[in-house]
């Protein structure tokens, strides 16, 4: 029981939670603005992790610098995918009704390609590297320096994301588009540009999270899938289209998972996460905080 109260777990929960929040808010952003479920979302974290790994291993570049490259790589991938595939899917009026189903298949294909492409290029060997891994003592809690920095950075990023949605015109436009597509066009929002931004921002946040976890997690081609699942649970928990809800729900799932595993055992992780998903779907399908309008086009 001691370990539950030591603060050790709370810090671990916050680390997991803030990473989850970053990954999930991007998934929800793309869903909210475009009504597309990115089942490849966690794979972008995998790409970000490999970027950090190779830059460190080959050139000794700090993961905190690699972060930026992870953002550039994933955002560029988002731009290419949007401009060459999804823009066409969204534009075709005939396809619009099927856009959701078709996009799911396209994302699924992208996920398969990213995973197997990485397996082919990087092999399926789990990788890792040592960076800032000395253990720090904070009161009774022990934490590796890289986790502490990850915690601080990801919390800062969560606040930055909140501020972006709250206080910038692009953030306002993103939130407008989530509520009503036609009304957004009426006020003069260039919706295709906002689609592109949500794609890039969503992908980049996932890539960034991947670069952060690369310092203490095993890196391999299939590491993204658990993040995809967690992010899905979080956006259901926080409400579809509710960006601030995702951030809060990410922290909540981090806490539930970390303390749940401490009580039960590591093998229970999936059971816990799917358990949360099923409970939410049964008890509060609209999410903890109520979903935003996810029907209006």
């Amino acid at each position: 029981m001691d370990v539950l109260l030591s603060g050790q777990l709370l810090i671990a929960a916050l680390v997991t939670g803030s990473i989850y929040a970053l990954v999930a808010v991007g998934l929800n952003l793309i869903y909210g603005t475009m009504r597309m479920l990115n089942v490849a979302h966690g794979d972008l974290a995998m790409i970000g992790a490999y970027v950090a790994f190779w830059l460190f291993t080959l050139y000794g570049i700090s993961p905190f610098i690699a972060l930026f490259l992870a953002v550039v790589v994933t955002a560029a991938l988002a731009a290419v995918l949007y401009l060459f595939i999804f823009k066409r899917v969204m534009r075709s009026v005939k396809l619009l009704d099927r856009a959701e189903a078709n996009s799911l298949l396209v994302f699924f294909g992208i996920s398969v390609i990213l995973q197997n492409g990485s397996a082919y290029v990087f092999t399926t060997n789990p990788r890792g590297f040592q960076y800032l891994d000395q253990v720090l003592q904070i009161g009774s809690a022990a934490i590796t320096a890289n986790r502490l920095v990850t915690l601080i950075l990801s919390l800062l990023l969560v606040f930055a994301v909140v501020a972006f949605f709250r206080f910038t015109m692009v953030g306002l436009a993103l939130r407008a588009l989530i509520q009503n597509r036609t009304a957004s066009q009426i006020v003069g929002i260039n919706i295709e540009r906002i689609f592109l931004y949500s794609f890039m921002l969503g992908f980049a946040l996932s890539g960034l999270a991947g670069a952060l976890v690369s310092m203490y997690e095993q890196i391999w081609p299939f590491m993204g899938f658990p993040y995809t699942i967690a992010a899905f649970v979080i956006i259901i928990l926080g409400g579809l289209g509710n960006l601030f809800g995702s951030l809060a729900a990410g922290m909540i799932l981090g806490v539930l998972e970390t303390f749940g595993i401490a009580i039960t055992g590591p093998n229970f992780r999936s059971i816990l996460i799917y358990g949360v998903l099923i409970l939410v779907l049964l008890l509060r399908p609209q999410g903890l905080f109520g979903g935003k309008r996810v029907v209006a086009r």
């Binding site: 939130r175 509520q179 009503n180 009304a183 309008r293």
Partner: peptide, 9 residues
């Protein structure tokens, strides 16, 4: 527009 279409949230 017809039906107002203000942003509800």
């Amino acid at each position: 527009p017809e039906g107002r279409l203000i942003f509800p949230d």
